[in-house]
Design a protein around this nucleic acid. Structure first.
Lengths: 208, 208
DNA sequence: TTATTTATGTAGTGATCGCTACTAAAAGAT
DNA sequence: ATCTTTTAGTAGCGATCACTACATAAATAA
């Protein structure tokens, strides 16, 4: 079946290396020359294997959100809305400050400022952030439906708060925040969550 | 005294325009060609007036932090630590979502990912963020000294939490978060603050 | 072997990057 | 007027950008 010369490098390993580069330096912070040097291949091979820099970045994002650290989906499946949210924050805090990978979230940080002609790259990541937010909101709404959270809770605001903390943790991690410090911040953030939920419950006259 | 041909453009206005560009698109997202076109001047004039792209960016950051929106310093001078922190968050939330200026914080967003050879630009902004954090911490410590906040409160963690929310709000603003939504997020964040302070007070056996 | 197919390395594409000689223009000083 | 000084515009610097034509190498298929 297979004809012709086979590829001489590991495409998956190369993609993982490229993901780390984009993660650490951002889309425009990584040049094709940097990629070819880091991957140990020539531009021709890179373009043959991945199409273009943009497509390689897309693939890297895809890898980041699937095979990469996805504490988000795992946490949101937890039973109990509070545990899900806390797991979300702590799981991501762990990932952001993991010394084995670049600090912070790739989706949040790798395309924050772009030159002319590359706006669509940032737009795609903004879409992903919006999608992530909707997943958090959906989990909160599920918690409301299951009686886990008060019905008067504004899932949209609550979700935005959680994502705000996540994005803030990304920048803190970039600035050298330690694992323990990140979790201390989550401690405070969860107190905000509990107070928000408690206030909504009290407004409904519900005692837990 | 003044001899020679005078400058034909308003340097301060040009700097303000450059600041907006850098603010919106980031350091590497703005080229000298974009600057000269937006400012209506030639490269020669730009370099004569500002030195280099890097120095122009430095001047833009300086303008951003002084003449620009500095709700931070204003809020931190407020009497009462809680009001100072809430004013800090709300003032910046206002600024981040002000439609007349680019969304989010320039110091937090404009140099998050940089190409090779421009790392020092990002380093300078990281230093500024660290400095901002120390100002917040100092205000919290002052609150402790004045009996405004419990002595057992960890000013370092509390400050990091506040800055985390600020940075998160910057990205939310980039993603189109409205003024009201930002303040709703601050509402929750302040509940976290109050719970954190309240817990520290309770641990000390202090009743308010 | 020979033919075919695919991947690779070399070298270089036009475009843009930040930046700068060089020259012309426009002001004050005399 | 002329000289001097400072700015502004033209044109282009070398370097790098993302990307690719071209020829070669290495595999399978016949």
């Amino acid at each position: 079946m297979a004809r012709g010369r086979p590829r001489s490098f590991d495409k998956e390993a190369a993609l993982r290396t490229a993901m780390e580069l984009f993660w650490r330096r951002g889309y425009e912070g990584v040049s094709v020359a940097m990629l070819t040097e880091a991957l140990g291949i020539t531009p021709t091979s890179l373009y043959a294997a991945f199409g273009s820099k943009g497509e390689l970045f897309d693939a890297a994002i895809e890898l980041y959100e699937t095979q990469g650290p996805s504490p988000t989906d795992r946490a949101l499946l937890l039973a109990g809305a509070r545990d899900a949210i806390e797991g979300l924050l702590r799981g991501n805090a762990d990932a952001y400050t993991d010394a084995r990978t670049p600090p912070g979230c790739m989706v949040a940080l790798s395309a924050m400022n772009l030159g002319a002609g590359h706006e669509e790259v940032g737009g795609k990541l903004a879409e992903r952030r919006k999608h992530d937010l909707s997943k958090i909101e959906a989990r909160i709404e599920r918690g409301i439906e299951e009686g886990d959270l008060p019905a008067s809770l504004d899932a949209s605001v609550a979700g935005a708060y959680v994502q705000t903390v996540l994005h803030g943790l990304s920048i803190q991690s970039r600035d050298g925040c330690s694992h323990d410090r990140a979790h201390a911040i989550v401690d405070v953030a969860m107190r905000g969550w509990d107070a928000m939920v408690g206030e909504a419950e009290k407004a409904e006259g519900i005692r837990h």
